[in-house]
Amino acid sequence: MKMDIAFGQYCHGDSVLHRLDPRVKIVTAIVFIVEIFLAKSAASFALIVAATVLLLALSGISPRIILRGIRPIVFVILFTAVINIFFVRGEKPLVEFWVIKIYPEGLINAAFIAIRIIVLIVSTSLFLTYTTTPIALTDGLEQLLSPLSKIKLPVHEFSMMMTIALRFIPTLIEETEKIMNAQKARGADFSTGGLIKRARALIPIMIPLFVSAFRRADELATAMECRCYTGGKGRTRLNVLKAGPADLIFALCVVALGAAVVLLNIYVPFFKVGIY
């Protein structure tokens, strides 16, 4: 079994997008998502798609990696598109065949929804996962949420837990593979038999994995204590996040994009989409 997960798939690079402040990226990503949902006409959709393509160009990430990221959700896209084609009712049917009636509105809706899902996935992964290291991401999140520590929420501790969890995902995957190979070498069989047999076959993997995860956690805690870690209070940072002019320009561009989308919706309302 080959384990290939796309989670947290950071693509190393040194583009404008990579260098942006993670806090700015998190906020603008949320704003961008709202803008995607604001787009309601052909013109505003075209603008959103153009903006996403521009983001892709800015990031310097190969389109092939982006396509690989879309592959797992192709089914979802097709499914929603097909539902829209067959179930959206309009005024004049384009095709009528037995009980099936396809309206032009349905086709437009289907196309827009497909574009919306693709743009949503591509843009958020460009903003966040592909161009921001998991560590920078949790760092940014911690600082964005730091006002919450005023009401006694342990923001720093949560973000530390998240950072550690992210850090250990590859380690645990590697460990799982090693243990699986060792049990396979003793003739363990994970790929035949019914559900119960397969679930039982996982016991020889899960137990050693848990044992070693706890051992690791224990060792890590000791190592952190040895270096006088006592939680967030009074802790300074090695890399202090600083938003520069580039961050400001980027944020302004994303806001301007939102305004443009709203204006295009009102003044260039061709192919306006219905309710969904």
Binding site: A182, P204, P208, S212
Partner: peptide
């Protein structure tokens, strides 16, 4: 029969 590196981690 293969005994992997650090095989004690395979005990369960």
């Amino acid at each position: 029969g293969v005994v992997m590196q650090y095989p004690e981690y395979q005990l369960f």
